[in-house]
Protein backbone atom coordinates (compact mmCIF):
# COMPACT_ATOMS: atom_id res chain seq x y z
CA UNK A 1 0.00 0.00 0.00
CA UNK A 2 2.75 2.41 1.02
CA UNK A 3 4.72 1.43 -2.05
CA UNK A 4 1.75 2.24 -4.25
CA UNK A 5 1.26 5.67 -2.61
CA UNK A 6 4.97 6.38 -2.99
CA UNK A 7 4.78 5.47 -6.68
CA UNK A 8 1.62 7.49 -7.28
CA UNK A 9 3.48 10.52 -5.94
CA UNK A 10 6.38 9.97 -8.36
CA UNK A 11 5.74 13.11 -10.44
CA UNK A 12 6.78 15.13 -7.38
CA UNK A 13 10.03 13.33 -6.75
CA UNK A 14 11.16 11.72 -9.98
CA UNK A 15 12.82 13.24 -12.99
CA UNK A 16 11.38 13.12 -16.51
CA UNK A 17 13.34 10.10 -17.65
CA UNK A 18 12.44 8.10 -14.55
CA UNK A 19 8.79 9.03 -14.91
CA UNK A 20 8.77 7.80 -18.46
CA UNK A 21 10.47 4.57 -17.50
CA UNK A 22 8.06 3.97 -14.63
CA UNK A 23 5.10 4.60 -16.93
CA UNK A 24 6.48 2.07 -19.36
CA UNK A 25 7.01 -0.43 -16.55
CA UNK A 26 3.38 -0.11 -15.45
CA UNK A 27 2.07 -0.66 -18.95
CA UNK A 28 4.30 -3.69 -19.43
CA UNK A 29 3.18 -5.07 -16.09
CA UNK A 30 -0.44 -4.64 -17.18
CA UNK A 31 0.20 -6.48 -20.44
CA UNK A 32 1.99 -9.23 -18.52
CA UNK A 33 -0.88 -9.62 -16.03
CA UNK A 34 -3.36 -9.87 -18.90
CA UNK A 35 -1.32 -12.37 -20.86
CA UNK A 36 -0.83 -14.39 -17.68
CA UNK A 37 -4.58 -14.46 -17.10
CA UNK A 38 -5.09 -15.87 -20.58
CA UNK A 39 -2.20 -18.30 -20.76
CA UNK A 40 -1.52 -19.09 -17.13
CA UNK A 41 -5.08 -19.46 -15.95
CA UNK A 42 -7.26 -20.06 -18.99
CA UNK A 43 -4.60 -22.09 -20.82
CA UNK A 44 -4.85 -19.98 -23.98
CA UNK A 45 -1.29 -19.43 -25.14
CA UNK A 46 -1.61 -16.49 -27.49
CA UNK A 47 1.28 -15.07 -29.46
CA UNK A 48 -0.97 -12.51 -31.06
CA UNK A 49 -1.94 -10.09 -28.31
CA UNK A 50 -0.12 -7.40 -30.29
CA UNK A 51 -3.28 -7.40 -32.41
CA UNK A 52 -5.12 -5.70 -29.57
CA UNK A 53 -2.22 -3.49 -28.48
CA UNK A 54 -1.98 -2.15 -32.01
CA UNK A 55 -5.73 -1.95 -32.46
CA UNK A 56 -6.01 0.11 -29.26
CA UNK A 57 -3.20 2.37 -30.41
CA UNK A 58 -4.64 2.91 -33.87
CA UNK A 59 -8.14 3.45 -32.53
CA UNK A 60 -6.81 6.15 -30.23
CA UNK A 61 -5.40 7.95 -33.26
CA UNK A 62 -8.45 7.37 -35.47
CA UNK A 63 -11.06 8.32 -32.90
CA UNK A 64 -9.27 11.49 -31.83
CA UNK A 65 -8.31 12.60 -35.33
CA UNK A 66 -11.49 11.76 -37.27
CA UNK A 67 -14.27 11.55 -34.69
CA UNK A 68 -12.93 14.29 -32.45
CA UNK A 69 -13.17 12.33 -29.23
CA UNK A 70 -10.93 13.44 -26.37
CA UNK A 71 -8.02 10.96 -26.00
CA UNK A 72 -9.20 9.40 -22.76
CA UNK A 73 -12.71 8.79 -24.11
CA UNK A 74 -11.15 7.37 -27.28
CA UNK A 75 -9.25 4.82 -25.21
CA UNK A 76 -12.47 3.77 -23.47
CA UNK A 77 -14.31 3.43 -26.78
CA UNK A 78 -11.46 1.47 -28.36
CA UNK A 79 -11.61 -1.02 -25.47
CA UNK A 80 -15.31 -1.58 -26.17
CA UNK A 81 -14.63 -1.96 -29.90
CA UNK A 82 -11.87 -4.46 -29.18
CA UNK A 83 -14.25 -6.50 -27.05
CA UNK A 84 -16.82 -6.51 -29.85
CA UNK A 85 -14.16 -7.59 -32.33
CA UNK A 86 -12.84 -10.28 -29.98
CA UNK A 87 -16.11 -12.23 -30.01
CA UNK A 88 -16.09 -13.29 -33.69
CA UNK A 89 -12.30 -13.76 -33.56
CA UNK A 90 -12.70 -16.07 -30.58
CA UNK A 91 -15.34 -18.14 -32.32
CA UNK A 92 -12.81 -18.63 -35.09
CA UNK A 93 -9.62 -19.41 -33.15
CA UNK A 94 -11.27 -21.36 -30.32
CA UNK A 95 -11.69 -24.15 -32.85
CA UNK A 96 -7.92 -24.52 -32.78
CA UNK A 97 -5.98 -26.33 -30.09
CA UNK A 98 -2.53 -25.90 -28.59
CA UNK A 99 0.08 -24.83 -31.11
CA UNK A 100 -2.57 -24.24 -33.76
CA UNK A 101 -4.32 -21.82 -31.44
CA UNK A 102 -1.07 -19.91 -30.96
CA UNK A 103 -0.47 -19.77 -34.71
CA UNK A 104 -4.07 -18.67 -35.22
CA UNK A 105 -3.63 -15.72 -32.87
CA UNK A 106 -0.47 -14.71 -34.68
CA UNK A 107 -2.18 -14.88 -38.08
CA UNK A 108 -4.99 -12.66 -36.77
CA UNK A 109 -2.43 -10.14 -35.55
CA UNK A 110 -0.77 -10.13 -38.98
CA UNK A 111 -4.14 -9.52 -40.61
CA UNK A 112 -4.61 -6.54 -38.28
CA UNK A 113 -1.18 -5.18 -39.17
CA UNK A 114 -1.71 -5.51 -42.92
CA UNK A 115 -5.17 -3.98 -42.65
CA UNK A 116 -4.01 -0.89 -40.78
CA UNK A 117 -1.08 -0.50 -43.17
CA UNK A 118 -3.66 -0.05 -45.94
CA UNK A 119 -5.38 2.91 -44.27
CA UNK A 120 -3.87 5.95 -45.96
CA UNK A 121 -5.61 8.39 -43.64
CA UNK A 122 -3.54 6.87 -40.82
CA UNK A 123 -0.30 7.13 -42.76
CA UNK A 124 -0.41 3.71 -44.41
CA UNK A 125 2.74 1.67 -43.96
CA UNK A 126 4.83 4.50 -42.54
CA UNK A 127 2.43 5.59 -39.83
CA UNK A 128 1.48 8.94 -38.42
CA UNK A 129 1.91 11.29 -35.48
CA UNK A 130 -0.77 12.54 -33.15
CA UNK A 131 -1.64 16.13 -34.25
CA UNK A 132 -0.31 18.83 -31.96
CA UNK A 133 -3.80 20.16 -31.21
CA UNK A 134 -4.85 16.81 -29.78
CA UNK A 135 -1.65 16.49 -27.78
CA UNK A 136 -2.22 19.97 -26.38
CA UNK A 137 -5.81 19.11 -25.46
CA UNK A 138 -4.46 16.71 -22.84
CA UNK A 139 -2.67 19.41 -20.86
CA UNK A 140 -1.17 22.64 -22.04
CA UNK A 141 2.28 22.23 -20.52
CA UNK A 142 4.71 19.48 -21.31
CA UNK A 143 5.25 18.54 -17.68
CA UNK A 144 1.47 18.52 -17.17
CA UNK A 145 1.16 16.02 -20.02
CA UNK A 146 3.93 13.90 -18.62
CA UNK A 147 2.32 13.74 -15.20
CA UNK A 148 -1.06 12.96 -16.74
CA UNK A 149 0.30 10.16 -18.85
CA UNK A 150 2.08 8.83 -15.75
CA UNK A 151 -1.14 8.87 -13.74
CA UNK A 152 -3.01 7.16 -16.56
CA UNK A 153 -0.39 4.43 -16.72
CA UNK A 154 -0.35 3.75 -12.99
CA UNK A 155 -4.15 4.01 -12.86
CA UNK A 156 -4.50 1.48 -15.68
CA UNK A 157 -2.08 -0.87 -14.00
CA UNK A 158 -3.95 -0.70 -10.70
CA UNK A 159 -7.25 -1.19 -12.51
CA UNK A 160 -5.96 -4.21 -14.42
CA UNK A 161 -4.35 -5.76 -11.36
CA UNK A 162 -7.31 -5.22 -9.05
CA UNK A 163 -9.82 -6.49 -11.64
CA UNK A 164 -7.80 -9.64 -12.18
CA UNK A 165 -7.44 -10.14 -8.44
CA UNK A 166 -11.18 -9.86 -7.79
CA UNK A 167 -12.02 -11.86 -10.88
CA UNK A 168 -9.83 -14.72 -9.72
CA UNK A 169 -11.34 -14.59 -6.25
CA UNK A 170 -14.88 -14.76 -7.63
CA UNK A 171 -16.93 -17.81 -8.48
CA UNK A 172 -15.82 -17.52 -12.10
CA UNK A 173 -12.20 -17.14 -11.17
CA UNK A 174 -12.49 -20.31 -9.14
CA UNK A 175 -13.89 -22.05 -12.20
CA UNK A 176 -11.04 -20.66 -14.29
CA UNK A 177 -8.44 -21.91 -11.84
CA UNK A 178 -10.14 -25.30 -11.93
CA UNK A 179 -9.82 -25.33 -15.73
CA UNK A 180 -6.14 -24.49 -15.37
CA UNK A 181 -5.60 -27.47 -13.08
CA UNK A 182 -7.77 -30.11 -14.75
CA UNK A 183 -10.11 -29.54 -17.66
CA UNK A 184 -11.76 -32.96 -17.55
CA UNK A 185 -12.63 -32.69 -13.90
CA UNK A 186 -13.77 -29.10 -14.31
CA UNK A 187 -16.26 -29.89 -17.03
CA UNK A 188 -17.39 -32.90 -15.03
CA UNK A 189 -18.24 -30.53 -12.18
CA UNK A 190 -20.39 -28.27 -14.29
CA UNK A 191 -17.83 -25.67 -15.36
CA UNK A 192 -18.70 -24.23 -18.76
CA UNK A 193 -15.22 -24.27 -20.23
CA UNK A 194 -16.03 -22.62 -23.53
CA UNK A 195 -17.93 -19.72 -22.02
CA UNK A 196 -15.39 -19.14 -19.27
CA UNK A 197 -12.58 -18.99 -21.82
CA UNK A 198 -14.57 -16.68 -24.07
CA UNK A 199 -15.18 -14.26 -21.20
CA UNK A 200 -11.49 -14.20 -20.38
CA UNK A 201 -10.51 -13.73 -24.02
CA UNK A 202 -12.91 -10.84 -24.55
CA UNK A 203 -12.11 -9.01 -21.33
CA UNK A 204 -8.38 -9.46 -21.96
CA UNK A 205 -8.78 -8.08 -25.49
CA UNK A 206 -10.59 -4.99 -24.22
CA UNK A 207 -8.05 -4.23 -21.49
CA UNK A 208 -5.11 -4.97 -23.79
CA UNK A 209 -6.51 -2.47 -26.31
CA UNK A 210 -6.85 0.15 -23.57
CA UNK A 211 -3.22 -0.43 -22.56
CA UNK A 212 -2.27 -0.18 -26.25
CA UNK A 213 -4.00 3.18 -26.40
CA UNK A 214 -2.02 4.40 -23.39
CA UNK A 215 1.27 3.11 -24.82
CA UNK A 216 0.80 5.11 -28.01
CA UNK A 217 -0.52 8.11 -26.13
CA UNK A 218 2.90 8.10 -24.48
CA UNK A 219 4.74 7.61 -27.78
CA UNK A 220 2.57 10.12 -29.74
CA UNK A 221 3.53 8.33 -32.95
CA UNK A 222 2.26 5.11 -34.46
CA UNK A 223 3.17 2.86 -37.37
CA UNK A 224 2.01 -0.65 -38.26
CA UNK A 225 5.37 -2.20 -37.43
CA UNK A 226 5.54 -0.56 -34.02
CA UNK A 227 1.87 -1.10 -33.20
CA UNK A 228 1.76 -4.78 -34.13
CA UNK A 229 5.29 -5.70 -33.08
CA UNK A 230 5.39 -9.31 -31.97
CA UNK A 231 8.71 -8.66 -30.23
CA UNK A 232 7.64 -5.72 -28.14
CA UNK A 233 4.11 -6.72 -27.19
CA UNK A 234 4.27 -10.48 -27.08
CA UNK A 235 7.80 -11.90 -26.88
CA UNK A 236 8.91 -9.60 -24.05
CA UNK A 237 5.60 -10.08 -22.28
CA UNK A 238 5.90 -13.86 -22.45
CA UNK A 239 9.49 -13.56 -21.20
CA UNK A 240 8.25 -11.55 -18.22
CA UNK A 241 5.50 -13.97 -17.31
CA UNK A 242 7.55 -17.10 -17.81
CA UNK A 243 10.57 -16.01 -15.77
CA UNK A 244 8.34 -14.44 -13.12
CA UNK A 245 6.06 -17.44 -12.73
CA UNK A 246 3.17 -18.28 -14.99
CA UNK A 247 -0.22 -18.91 -13.44
CA UNK A 248 0.50 -16.89 -10.31
CA UNK A 249 -0.61 -13.39 -9.49
CA UNK A 250 2.82 -12.39 -8.21
CA UNK A 251 4.81 -13.80 -11.14
CA UNK A 252 4.25 -10.93 -13.58
CA UNK A 253 5.39 -8.38 -10.95
CA UNK A 254 8.66 -10.20 -10.30
CA UNK A 255 9.09 -10.81 -14.02
CA UNK A 256 8.58 -7.17 -14.93
CA UNK A 257 11.10 -6.02 -12.34
CA UNK A 258 13.66 -8.55 -13.59
CA UNK A 259 13.03 -7.66 -17.22
CA UNK A 260 13.54 -3.95 -16.69
CA UNK A 261 16.60 -4.51 -14.49
CA UNK A 262 18.13 -6.56 -17.29
CA UNK A 263 17.07 -4.13 -19.96
CA UNK A 264 18.42 -1.07 -18.19
CA UNK A 265 21.75 -2.67 -17.25
CA UNK A 266 22.28 -4.26 -20.66
CA UNK A 267 21.02 -1.32 -22.71
CA UNK A 268 24.53 -0.55 -23.97
CA UNK A 269 25.21 -4.00 -25.36
CA UNK A 270 22.91 -3.82 -28.35
CA UNK A 271 21.95 -7.16 -29.79
CA UNK A 272 23.88 -9.04 -27.08
CA UNK A 273 21.05 -7.89 -24.84
CA UNK A 274 18.52 -10.06 -26.67
CA UNK A 275 20.84 -13.04 -26.47
CA UNK A 276 21.27 -12.57 -22.73
CA UNK A 277 17.48 -12.35 -22.31
CA UNK A 278 17.17 -15.64 -24.16
CA UNK A 279 19.85 -17.23 -21.98
CA UNK A 280 18.17 -16.03 -18.80
CA UNK A 281 14.85 -17.43 -20.01
CA UNK A 282 16.41 -20.82 -20.74
CA UNK A 283 18.23 -20.89 -17.41
CA UNK A 284 15.11 -20.02 -15.45
CA UNK A 285 13.09 -22.61 -17.33
CA UNK A 286 15.63 -25.31 -16.48
CA UNK A 287 16.28 -24.29 -12.87
CA UNK A 288 12.80 -23.11 -11.94
CA UNK A 289 10.20 -24.26 -14.44
CA UNK A 290 7.51 -22.42 -12.53
CA UNK A 291 9.41 -19.16 -12.65
CA UNK A 292 11.22 -17.21 -10.00
CA UNK A 293 8.07 -16.64 -8.00
CA UNK A 294 7.00 -20.27 -8.28
CA UNK A 295 10.38 -21.25 -6.91
CA UNK A 296 10.22 -18.80 -4.00
CA UNK A 297 6.63 -19.71 -3.16
CA UNK A 298 7.43 -23.40 -3.12
CA UNK A 299 10.61 -23.02 -1.11
CA UNK A 300 9.17 -20.79 1.59
CA UNK A 301 5.50 -21.67 1.25
CA UNK A 302 4.38 -18.07 1.08
CA UNK A 303 1.78 -16.15 -0.80
CA UNK A 304 2.14 -12.40 -1.15
CA UNK A 305 -1.46 -11.89 -2.11
CA UNK A 306 -3.90 -14.11 -0.27
CA UNK A 307 -5.87 -15.73 -3.05
CA UNK A 308 -7.12 -18.74 -1.19
CA UNK A 309 -10.33 -19.28 0.57
CA UNK A 310 -9.51 -20.26 4.11
CA UNK A 311 -11.73 -22.16 6.46
CA UNK A 312 -11.66 -21.25 10.11
CA UNK A 313 -11.35 -24.56 11.82
CA UNK A 314 -12.95 -24.32 15.23
CA UNK A 315 -12.65 -27.53 17.09
Amino acid sequence: MLVVLFLVAAPWWAGRAELRLLGEIYLYLSLACLWNLMAGYAGMVSVGQQAYVGFGGYMLFALTMFVGLPPIAAIGVSAVLAAALAVPIASLIFRLNGAYFAIGTWVIAEVFRLTFAQVNALGGGSGTSLPVSIVKSLASSRSGRESLSYFLAIGAMILVFVSIYFFLRSKRGLALTAIRDNETAASGLGVNIWRTKLEVYVVTAALTAAIGGLIFLQKLRISPDAAFSVNDWTAFVIFIVVIGGIGTLEGPIIGTILFFLLRETLADYGSAYLMILGLVAILVMIKAPRGVWGWIAQKYDIELLPMRYRVQLDK
Binding site: K171, A186, V191
Partner: peptide, 30 residues
Protein backbone atom coordinates in the same frame (compact mmCIF):
# COMPACT_ATOMS: atom_id res chain seq x y z
CA UNK B 1 -23.61 -32.37 -14.00
CA UNK B 2 -25.67 -29.23 -13.55
CA UNK B 3 -28.75 -31.43 -13.84
CA UNK B 4 -27.61 -33.51 -10.91
CA UNK B 5 -25.31 -36.28 -12.16
CA UNK B 6 -22.00 -36.30 -10.28
CA UNK B 7 -19.17 -38.81 -10.22
CA UNK B 8 -15.94 -39.58 -8.45
CA UNK B 9 -12.98 -40.52 -10.60
CA UNK B 10 -11.31 -43.88 -10.04
CA UNK B 11 -7.99 -42.18 -10.67
CA UNK B 12 -8.37 -38.99 -8.63
CA UNK B 13 -8.39 -35.80 -10.65
CA UNK B 14 -7.97 -33.06 -8.07
CA UNK B 15 -7.34 -29.43 -8.94
CA UNK B 16 -3.77 -29.67 -7.66
CA UNK B 17 -3.13 -25.97 -7.23
CA UNK B 18 -6.23 -25.47 -5.14
CA UNK B 19 -6.98 -26.34 -1.54
CA UNK B 20 -9.33 -29.15 -0.59
CA UNK B 21 -11.92 -26.55 0.34
CA UNK B 22 -11.59 -24.70 -2.97
CA UNK B 23 -11.86 -27.96 -4.90
CA UNK B 24 -15.27 -28.53 -3.36
CA UNK B 25 -16.23 -24.90 -3.68
CA UNK B 26 -15.88 -25.18 -7.45
CA UNK B 27 -18.39 -28.04 -7.36
CA UNK B 28 -20.81 -26.22 -5.06
CA UNK B 29 -20.74 -22.95 -6.98
CA UNK B 30 -20.76 -24.42 -10.49
Amino acid sequence: CRNGIARSFQIPQPFNGMTVFENCLVAATQ
